[in-house]
């Protein structure tokens, strides 16, 4: 845990997931163990360039994983890093998915867009602790079939017991095996889970979250069983800089994972 001053993280391996999108495997240079919750984020900095918030993808073989898309100067520099190069790390910040609270329930993951790391990290956790949860339902929407990252993982999850994987492509004209055409929300009618004993975790554009709500209501999912991972401008990660506010909430501190009833009044209100 480091808040004001970064600690060093050394790049061990970069995995290119798709053009302009890569997973960095980082060795955290810290004497104390780096502990975190899935759904939390770190502030990562490139020397001389800047600092950005990146959600935590996971932990594997003693290395911290961050999946980064090249959007601006800092993220572009990060995915171009050489092995053994260092970046600065502050974090972890915010609240993650309360996965322990969900034990004994069906888990429903709804994501849309490219590389929704916070949800994939939570799926990995649920799969690794399979006996703690009942059914796992994964709904993922992308524009094109090829946009789906970690395809082998989805294939593996599909063949796992009591796990349903539903995929949708919104900008394809031909349907592929295991895929539907359309938006992720259209998959909800095919999802099989117990609405009275479930936890729904959603990550992606807010417009998708809004569109998913009527479907969830139709399936009699209660608001209090829904959790959302929100995105806003983070400058500090500590609830101080003011940029990330949605109504009364500081997303970096009170989120980024929110209990749906807490943000419901603000969701989809333009300008907040």
């Amino acid at each position: 845990m480091t808040d004001y001053v970064p600690i060093r993280a050394r790049l061990m391996v970069t995995t290119e997931e798709s053009p302009g999108l890569a997973t960095l495997h980082l060795k955290v240079q810290s004497e104390t163990p780096f502990t975190f919750q899935f759904g939390q984020f770190n502030m990562l900095s490139m020397f001389g360039i800047g600092e950005i918030p990146i959600s935590i993808m996971g932990w594997q073989d003693g290395l911290l994983m961050h999946t980064i898309r090249a959007v601006g100067r800092v993220s572009t520099a990060m995915i171009g890093m050489q092995k053994d190069q260092e970046l600065g790390l502050r974090g972890p910040f915010g609240k993650g998915w309360p996965l322990e609270k969900f034990e004994g329930r069906d888990l429903v993951f709804i994501t849309a867009g490219l590389g929704c790391a916070p949800v994939v990290a939570a799926i990995n956790y649920a799969v690794a602790h399979r006996n703690r949860y009942r059914r796992i339902v994964i709904l993922q929407g992308v524009k094109h079939h090829n946009d789906l990252l970690w395809q082998p993982k989805y294939d593996a999850w599909r063949t796992m017991g009591d796990c349903q994987v539903l995929l949708a492509a919104s900008e394809e004209s031909k349907r592929k095996h295991h895929w539907k055409l359309g938006l992720v929300t259209a998959l909800l009618d095919d999802a099989e889970f117990d609405p009275r004993h479930c936890a729904v975790m959603i990550c992606g554009p807010e417009i998708m979250m809004l569109a998913a709500m009527p479907f969830l209501q139709k399936h009699q999912v209660r608001d209090e069983d829904i959790y959302l991972s929100m995105e806003r401008n983070f400058q500090c990660g500590m609830g101080a800089c003011g940029h990330c506010q949605i109504g009364p909430h500081f997303v970096c501190r009170d989120g980024p994972v929110f209990h749906y009833p807490d943000v419901k009044p603000w969701l989809g209100v333009k300008g907040f």
Partner: peptide, 8 residues
């Protein structure tokens, strides 16, 4: 007012 931004 307390908003701030950070620059490298």
């Amino acid at each position: 007012c307390f908003c701030s931004k950070q620059e490298a």
